[in-house]
Computed example of a mutant assay.
Amino acid sequence: MPGMLTGKKTQRYSVEFKVKAVEWSHQAHRSVKGVAEALDIHPFMLSRWRKEHREGKFAMKRVKKAPVEANEKIKKQDEITRLKRQISELQEENEILKKFQRFQAEERRKRSDSSGNTDTSTE
Rank of each mutant, 00 (worst) to 15 (best):
K20E: 07
H29E: 09
E16Q: 09
T10M: 15
L5S: 12
G34R: 01
Y13Q: 09
A21Y: 00
R12K: 10
F17M: 06
V22W: 05
K8V: 03
L5K: 12
E16W: 11
K18I: 01
Q11Y: 14
V22C: 09
T10P: 10
G7P: 03
W24A: 05
V32C: 03
E16P: 10
L5C: 07
S14A: 11
F17H: 08
G7H: 01
S25N: 03
F17T: 15
K33G: 06
V15K: 09
V35Y: 00
W24R: 11
A28D: 07
A28E: 06
E16T: 07
S25E: 02
V22A: 11
Q27I: 14
V35F: 00
K20I: 12
S25G: 08
L5N: 08
R12H: 05
Y13H: 08
K8Y: 06
F17L: 14
L5W: 14
K33S: 13
K9V: 06
A21I: 03
Q27S: 05
A21D: 02
T6V: 04
S14K: 11
T10F: 08
Y13F: 13
K9L: 07
Q11S: 14
V15I: 14
Y13E: 05
T6L: 09
W24H: 12
L5H: 07
Q27C: 07
K18E: 02
S31Y: 00
E23R: 15
H26V: 10
R30M: 06
V32E: 03
T6Y: 02
V32M: 06
G34T: 00
K20D: 14
A21C: 12
Q11P: 08
S31D: 01
W24K: 13
V32T: 09
H26Q: 08
S25Y: 02
A21H: 00
V35L: 02
H29P: 04
Q27A: 04
E16D: 12
V35M: 02
V35S: 01
T10G: 12
V19C: 14
V35K: 00
K9Q: 15
R30W: 09
H29K: 10
S25D: 01
W24E: 10
H29R: 12
S31Q: 02
L5F: 11
Y13V: 04
K18N: 03
Q11H: 13
G7Q: 04
K9T: 08
A21G: 02
V35E: 01
K8F: 03
A21Q: 01
Q27L: 11
V15R: 13
Q11L: 12
Y13M: 05
S31F: 01
G7T: 04
T10V: 07
H26P: 13
R30P: 01
K9F: 07
G34D: 03
H26F: 14
R30A: 05
L5Q: 15
K8G: 04
K9R: 10
W24S: 04
R12N: 13
V35N: 00
K8Q: 04
K18W: 02
E16S: 08
E23Q: 13
H26Y: 10
V32F: 02
K9G: 05
T6K: 04
T10W: 14
